[in-house]
Design a protein around this nucleic acid. Structure first.
Lengths: 106, 106
DNA sequence: AACTAACAGGCACATATTTACCGTTTATTA
DNA sequence: TAATAAACGGTAAATATGTGCCTGTTAGTT
């Protein structure tokens, strides 16, 4: 079956939480130790694992505590520039430009 | 050079933001369109891209808007159980158990 | 089966993020 | 280089998350 069959933000958060919990368990760390290592409260960790709402900072701190920062690479790859494009434009675009309004007198 | 040379939560957030921005640009989407698609405000998107603090929900909404939910899989793999373990224990542990206090009369 | 510590969740208050709106800066095109 | 829209950053009020504390619940050991 395909991964990520769920798509609602609420469900995604729960899914992420479950996976983080499993990751923690696979590391043989309890919530107290993990929270301490991450520099957050146990409650914040519980909320994260339960998918009850967290901040990005909390998420990153936990990932680091679980030695799983590499996951960040996958989350948003370092460079996503098409090699073919690289041959034509020296610097990647820093803005998106929508096409200008067409000439009224076609 | 290695990815993720930074480790402070603040720097990690900035790094994540930069990557998300590059991802958005590679999709040729502007902030307005992306924010609308994600169901969040442009400001929230800007804060995320600038690493200025966000919620996990905002992050997930943006990832979905950028068609990059697959990144979640990498972030926390669906199954992290060692296949070898699977042969010995039917159900994975749901708790971490620290060793009991040693007998005083060793 | 009893024990015990890990886990779960509610509450009140502190702190952070979101939203909506604003004016400004700046990349990119014509 | 002038025009234009994308991107940036500040503020105030609304909403959400974090923390600390406390009380159950339950998995895993003995």
């Amino acid at each position: 079956m395909a991964t990520l069959a769920f798509s609602a933000p609420h469900e995604l958060q729960e899914l992420l939480g479950e996976r983080l919990k499993r990751l923690r368990l696979s590391r043989n760390l309890d919530q107290r130790t993990t929270a301490e290592k991450a520099g957050i409260s146990e409650k914040a960790l519980r909320n994260l694992e339960a998918g009850r709402g967290s901040t990005v900072e909390t998420l990153l701190r936990v990932l680091k505590a679980l030695d799983h920062l590499q996951g960040l690479d996958m989350l948003a790859p370092e460079v996503s520039v098409n090699p073919l494009e690289l041959l034509r434009q020296a610097k990647p675009p820093q803005r998106v430009r929508r096409p200008r309004k067409q000439n009224p007198a076609g």
